[in-house]
């Protein structure tokens, strides 16, 4: 175990430095290309993550990796970063659907509900071990974020909404990182002692992959103004939607009757 830690420690330090440099570079890119105007919450998330990373680094340096202070600060800053990430994900969702007022009103409620349900399940289903409470909460939040992004894309596909490449890349980056974090935390929970040396390393690798996706997507300037959709007057939906559903219901009833008739004799 000690040998493993000693072997990967230099990689871990190098990765930490690489991730921080990558984040700083992406932030600079956001400022230079003025993309922070279109994605303020995403920019804020990167800034918070970078600042918290530096804070944790100094805390480890001052009090040591295994001190109680370092433990408290590391998990505390993680909570702040997760909150900033949730805001960034909400921004991605809004970028994709908010111009469709009616569907957006429905979508954000469903996305929020999904997040709450997944988080609740993750926490309730986990072992009630207070030593692992933070890990469990972290995994629950990561799973909620991944679920929200997948449901968002399912919404977009169902309503045939065109997904802008930048929005798609940001969402994929968040989703992949969250999925890897869930896997990482799940494995850690099971093989706590054998795996803890690799936990941080794999997490940083996943973040580096997401960072690369985001940097590639944001390498050009994005137009700040979204193309406005011309919406229909509300009367049209109220007049047609029930009619459509009535027809579909009748149609399905007829198919259902047919199925029973066919299934009967055989």
């Amino acid at each position: 175990m000690r040998l493993a830690m000693a072997t990967i420690a230099p990689f871990q330090d190098a990765l930490w430095a690489l991730n921080s440099a990558g984040e700083a570079l992406l932030l600079t890119l956001l400022v230079v290309r003025k993309n922070y105007r279109s994605y303020p919450a995403f920019s804020f998330y990167l800034l918070v993550d970078l600042t918290m990373g530096a804070t944790v680094f100094f805390v480890y340096h001052l009090w040591g990796f295994h001190s109680a202070t370092a433990y408290g600060v590391a998990w505390g800053t993680k909570g702040i970063v997760l909150f900033a990430r949730a805001l960034a994900v909400a921004e991605v969702c809004a970028h994709l659907l908010s111009r469709y007022r009616g569907v957006w009103a429905l979508a954000w409620r469903i996305l929020l509900l999904c997040a709450v349900l997944v988080l609740s399940y993750s926490i309730l289903a986990a072992r009630h071990d207070w030593g692992l409470a933070l890990l469990t909460a972290d995994r629950g939040l990561e799973l909620s974020i991944a679920t929200v992004i997948v449901v968002l894309f399912l919404f977009a596909r169902y309503y045939e909404v065109k997904v802008e490449p930048v929005v798609r890349s940001l969402a994929i980056g968040f989703c992949l990182y969250s999925c890897s974090a869930v896997l990482n935390n799940t494995v850690l929970e099971r093989w706590l002692h054998d795996y803890s040396a690799f936990w941080n390393l794999l997490r940083m690798l996943a973040f580096l992959a997401s960072l690369s996706i985001w940097s590639w997507a944001l390498r050009h300037s994005q137009s700040e103004a979204q193309t406005k959709e011309i919406l229909l007057p509300s009367g049209i939906y109220q007049a047609i939607a029930p009619e459509i559903n009535l027809r579909l219901r009748l149609f399905n009833e007829q198919l259902g009757r047919f199925w029973k008739v066919e299934a009967g004799p055989s």
Partner: peptide
Amino acid sequence: ARVIAILSPEVGAAQEFERLQLGVQFALR
């Protein structure tokens, strides 16, 4: 129906869920 929904300033959750359910039923049948 979907286009009308997406271009409407207000949509009914019940109508949308029902249509989704009916669409899935139709495809399965």
